[in-house]
């Protein structure tokens, strides 16, 4: 699937509506980091990834790992919109018996490539998938989305070293650089900066972009396909809570569910010209 830029923007708007609504229904969850990643994840699922929702285990598919697993709502919204399961199921988020666990569970929900939630582990798994694709001679590509608080985990750098050592040019990491983590600004809690320089020093191609500009996201993903011999890191500058004015850049919205009244205001802001997807 390869939607044009206008369609991507429209799709991301719908995905944001799903995010705020399902977290409100659940009464808990992580809106801030789901909204900051919405444009990145939308572009992956509706422009970049080679997938077949009718065959979630198709060996030739591309893989996406949401390493920042607490942003599960953005993944679930994208998977539902892409046809992996009914959109109505989004309202079961975090409920007993639901396939939509608080953090993604690959054994429960089709389309989830890796169970994540414990930060720092997704890139290593991406390494394994990229090595396997090479061993099997498949041209599958592997995409891993990391948070900027997440890269404080030492394991991320073990993995970054290995992706570069094994020259995994079928692997793309994307950094949701929204500059906030639970305890406050990343710069104050434990600064991992300078991030672009660190990834470069670890042997990666680094592409810095605006993570809310679809033309830049598409261009970077396209460019990453042509970069050989090394893995590519796309550093996406984003805004935590993007799309809902009262959540933007507010650390309080890292892990707080909106109340019904706040949901109504958020949905009002996320209203589109045509509300065909709004559900």
């Amino acid at each position: 699937m390869s939607e044009d830029l206008a369609a991507l923007a429209e799709r991301a708007r719908v995905i944001r509506r799903h995010i705020v609504r399902m977290i409100t229904r659940a009464g808990s969850g992580h809106p801030g980091g789901s909204l900051s990643a919405a444009d990145i994840v939308t572009t992956l699922y509706f422009h970049e990834l080679r997938l077949d929702p009718r065959r979630p285990d198709w060996p030739e598919r591309d893989r996406f790992i949401l390493s920042k697993g607490h942003a599960a709502p953005v993944l679930y919204a994208a998977l539902a919109e892409r046809g992996f399961f009914p959109v109505e199921e989004l309202d079961t988020l975090r409920q007993l018996g639901s396939r939509l666990q608080g953090h993604p569970d690959l054994r429960k929900l089709p389309g989830v490539e890796m169970s994540t939630g414990s930060l720092g582990q997704g890139l290593a798994v991406g390494n394994g998938m990229a090595l396997a694709a090479r061993l099997d001679g498949r041209d599958s590509r592997v995409y891993v989305l990391l948070g900027d608080g997440e890269v404080e985990e030492g394991m991320v750098w073990e993995a970054a070293m290995a992706s570069s050592h094994y020259r995994l040019d079928n692997l793309v990491a994307m950094l949701d650089h929204n500059r906030l983590q639970i305890d406050g600004p990343v710069a104050e809690v434990m600064s991992p900066e300078p991030l672009a320089e660190k990834w470069r020093a670890f042997g990666w191609h680094v592409l810095p972009i605006d993570g809310h500009d679809f033309s830049q996201i598409v261009a970077a993903l396209t460019r990453a396909r042509s970069l050989k011999g090394r893995p590519t890191m796309i550093v996406c500058e984003t805004v935590k809570g993007k799309g809902v004015s009262f959540m933007e850049n507010q650390v309080e919205w890292h892990g707080t569910a909106p109340k019904e009244e706040e949901l109504a205001r958020a949905l009002e802001e996320l209203e589109g010209k045509s509300d065909v997807y709004a559900g």
Binding site: L123, A124, V125, N127, G128, D136, M161, A162
Partner: peptide, 28 residues
């Protein structure tokens, strides 16, 4: 040699990499 990966002194990444290989049908 093609099916052996030295992961260096980095056990955490080694476990994650093994998980990714297993998810792609390998038996690590």
């Amino acid at each position: 040699p093609d099916r052996f990966f030295d992961m260096g002194v980095a056990e955490q990444n080694m476990m994650g990499t093994a998980a990714g290989l297993a998810l792609s049908g390998k038996i690590p």
